[in-house]
Amino acid sequence: MRLPLKSLLVSVLAATTLVSVAHADQLADIKKKGEIVVGVLGTDEPNSFVDPKSREIVGYEVDLANAIARKIGVKATFKQIAVAARIPELQQGRVDLLAASLTHNKEREAQIDFSLTTFVTGQKVMVKASSGIADVPQLAGKKVLTVKGGTQEENVRKAVPSVDVVTFETTQQAFQALQQGKGAGYVNDEATLVNDIAKLGPAKKDYKILPTNLSTEPLALGIRKNEPALKKVVDDTLAELEKSGEADKIFMKWYGPTTKLQFDKRSFKIDSDKI
């Protein structure tokens, strides 16, 4: 029984590899079909979210992706995907580009390529103010909540090895579970936490974000492996946005003082794809 199963798997894997080799140049394919399919979360304000008025997906990463589409001369089509589905969707060719609050880390470099870093955030933990937890070490032995498929679980376990982690399909569910008291903390990118707290209205005084960063997360756009032409046009577009000052304007539009996030300045530059 063992051999046939193994050889079957090998042939399936070989077939998969052949399919991915068949698309030699993705950029040419994108130009041919006249659209670039961009995988976004659509649930992560302000990176990508559904605008309640226009019902369109908008946001910081959406603006960056639109600039790239304009540069290539095609239309950008946005496809909403789940956090855990991001890398598989890209690898299997169902999206051409990921603009989905994607952390650039060493482990993932073996799977996909990354653009220049488009955002830098830290992961932090939100707790209820009444919990008496002052900083991250006090989470030892407690239950924390977060989303499946990201780097959050790994980072909080690294910071507090004895922590108990429960993960959900979306960040909203994890935040909801915190509000209901189902865990002591909720782990996410700082920008998302700030935005989540801002949504609470008057109840926001009941929550606080612990000061210590669990990690520094460089976010970048995800590109399939070995697509140098596409990576070049993506990086060139981002570098031009940085040079012209447009990147700063886009940042201020979504993260600046007039937004819920209220960042007064940008603490990073889009100039490197090294981490």
Partner: peptide, 18 residues
């Protein structure tokens, strides 16, 4: 709903090790 059963752990292996 975050029960750490088979599917949950498989997804965890997938995100950690691809």
């Amino acid at each position: 709903i975050g029960v750490a059963e088979l599917m949950y752990q498989a997804a965890r292996v997938e995100s950690a090790a691809f």
